[in-house]
Design a protein around this nucleic acid. Structure first.
Lengths: 164, 164
DNA sequence: CCTTGACCTTCCCATCGTTGGAAACTGCAC
DNA sequence: GTGCAGTTTCCAACGATGGGAAGGTCAAGG
């Protein structure tokens, strides 16, 4: 079948299918006489697997490992479970990060009258002197892997500095 | 002061300071005779404001609006509050997405023996025929990386074949 | 004075997953 | 045979960030 059909029934867009092929996540598709890519049910099955894994927040790289685990009929279920549990941990860390943001923002928002006056603790909280946010725990070393997340920055921008 | 010093005391890397200038988030920095960028305390103050807003998950675009609200002394605190509350909502949605992933993964993992045998409900859950994951609501656009990335992941390809 | 090293400048590239679009071709129906 | 839908490849963009090259500046020490 053509790529469009495979895309439709797998839930992976044609663009992404080509991308996955290009990056080696999936093998090169067979070709019809026309040059069109040709997919069979097994291909579609794999694509659906990929989409589900993406929906569960796995990166493409991780999906590569999952595909390996899938096709390795001799691997232990413990291997898969460990992989999943580790991913769950990362997701929870991400949730915790966001939750911390929400807590801080809610604290600020709760102190804001939200009326016609310009006086606003939210803006003041952002503009405040000093290095910490309101009553947030003193900036922990929370730097996790860069799996799609952002907050892993905070680097020291230079070591010795003089006032020029 | 030089960019390195401004970076250090604001917590924003030199690279990002230049980037913010380039994209117009902050005005063009003054220059010393040498051509080096020159920052004063007000500039650093603004940079710290930006870093705090980033730490709270605001996108650069949103920070542009926040800077506008900050410098607009006539705007109502209600405006800022509404802005913050909307952001909180988006963060909570993101958390809910991730939580759904975690719940699905934990359900799968709980059914996995995690022993030496190859039999594994996690992989089977991903490979399963049919279109839905265990008890997951009909897939929403996920993508929890950034709070405001191009969130519309809607590919026209897979829209009309939900089996249930 | 000259070297050294830390700093700065600009410019380009890579990341990650995904989409958009252009130019050219194929397949199918009218 | 004409037109449209689907396909091909290639190139670019997004957002926020880091890496690095090639070269200019500055201060300290010889």
């Amino acid at each position: 079948m053509n790529i469009g059909r495979a895309a439709k029934i797998s839930g992976v867009s044609p663009k992404m299918i080509r991308y996955y092929e290009q990056t080696g996540l999936i093998p090169k598709a067979a070709r019809q006489d026309s040059g069109y890519r040709d997919y069979d049910d097994a291909d579609v099955h794999r694509l659906r697997f990929i989409r589900r894994a993406r929906d569960l927040g796995f990166t493409v790289e991780q999906i590569g490992e999952l595909l390996g685990l899938w096709s390795d009929r001799s691997r232990a279920s413990a291997d898969v479970k460990a992989f999943a549990l580790e991913h769950i941990e990362r997701l929870k860390e991400k949730m915790a990060e966001i939750e911390a943001m929400v807590r801080t923002l809610e604290t600020l928002a709760n102190h804001c009258h939200g009326d016609d006056r310009p006086d606003c603790p939210i803006i003041e909280g952002l503009a405040e002197e000093g290095d910490a946010m309101p009553r947030l725990q003193p900036r922990e070393p929370r730097r996790f892997g860069r799996s799609g997340g952002q907050s892993a920055r905070r680097h020291a921008a230079g070591s010795s500095n003089r006032t020029h």
